[in-house]
């Protein structure tokens, strides 16, 4: 799987008009309805609804403390909202544990890198295959026959991802030794190893320089286009958000203040006020 074949530059590839018609026709992968989440007296999310269509890149933006990460935590089962409904692939979801969400095909990266620091890049990505491996304790002890076959099978998959994200050189390096930008990339690789239907990216470009951001943007587009993965993206770099995403949700103080095409959202008065403040 070569990235070069599809190596299209990040910006300009997605005509806004074309994708809008496309996404409107697409089926909904995940929908959240009237979600309310509070911790004691603090309302992190208030009555927010939106949906994510299959195959799109959906950005969630907003000022700090707007409830974006809380929203992701609700989607992958870390937080349990007091009110509201979540349905994934048309199935309404009850209170669930994170590993159940993982089992259903939701993967995630974190704002502050959450890699397994004591393990190598390869092991970190193999860790993403955990749910797909089933050999029991007996065979694991022997590491032979079916267990070895399974291990090698998944190694092939993992190597495909390593090729895809161009991290061959750091395969055997413990991730703790890697520079930050590469750690972020390994984290993406680990999430991809789960072969998710929905990929949640929490600030994949935070703290990166321009070049690293361009690389990461290209990878996100490649994942979306080549693998067909639906992506929900939290990002502060508005330029990146406008270029990458099909649709944007804007949160502020736990409430949804805008939802729509990037260009529309950019022009929205409430959004501008939330970001720049209101004149009094």
């Amino acid at each position: 799987m070569s990235v070069m074949e599809a190596g299209t530059p990040a910006a300009g590839i997605r005509g806004a008009a074309a994708t809008s018609a496309e996404t409107a026709a697409r089926e909904t992968l995940l929908s959240v309805e009237n979600i309310t989440l509070s911790f004691g007296g603090v309302h992190a999310i208030r009555n927010v609804s939106f949906e994510i269509a299959k195959g799109e890149i959906r950005a969630i933006i907003g000022p700090n403390g707007a409830g974006k990460t809380s929203m992701l935590n609700v989607i992958n089962g870390f937080y349990h909202p007091q009110e509201g409904l979540i349905s994934f692939r048309g199935q309404e979801r009850r209170r669930m544990k994170p590993y159940e969400a993982a089992n259903q095909g939701i993967a995630r990266t974190f704002q502050n890198v959450a890699l397994f620091r004591g393990m190598t890049t390869l092991d970190n990505i193999m860790a993403g295959r955990t749910l797909k491996m089933h050999r029991g304790f007996f065979w694991q002890c022997l590491h032979w026959g079916p267990a070895l076959k399974e291990e090698v099978e998944h190694r092939h998959k993992v190597e495909e991802i390593i090729d895809f994200l161009e991290i061959q050189a750091i395969r055997k390096t413990p991730v703790g030794r890697l520079p930050y930008g590469l750690q972020k990339r390994v984290e993406l690789a680990r999430a991809l190893a789960m072969e998710p239907d929905l990929l949640l990216l929490d600030e994949p470009m935070a703290g990166m320089n321009l070049e690293e951001k361009e690389d990461m943007s290209r990878f996100i587009l490649d994942v979306n286009q080549q693998l067909g993965t639906t992506i929900a993206l939290i990002e502060h770099d508005i330029g990146v958000v406008m270029d990458l995403s099909d649709r944007v949700v804007v949160l502020d103080h736990g409430e949804k203040i805008a939802d729509g095409m990037p260009a529309d959202v950019q022009a929205n008065k409430a959004v501008i006020e939330a970001y720049l403040g209101v004149e009094h």
Binding site: K97, A101, A102, F116, T130
Partner: peptide, 12 residues
């Protein structure tokens, strides 16, 4: 051991 939250999200 390394990151229990992430482990849970990977299905552990």
């Amino acid at each position: 051991r390394d990151m229990d939250i992430a482990a849970e999200l990977m299905g552990v």
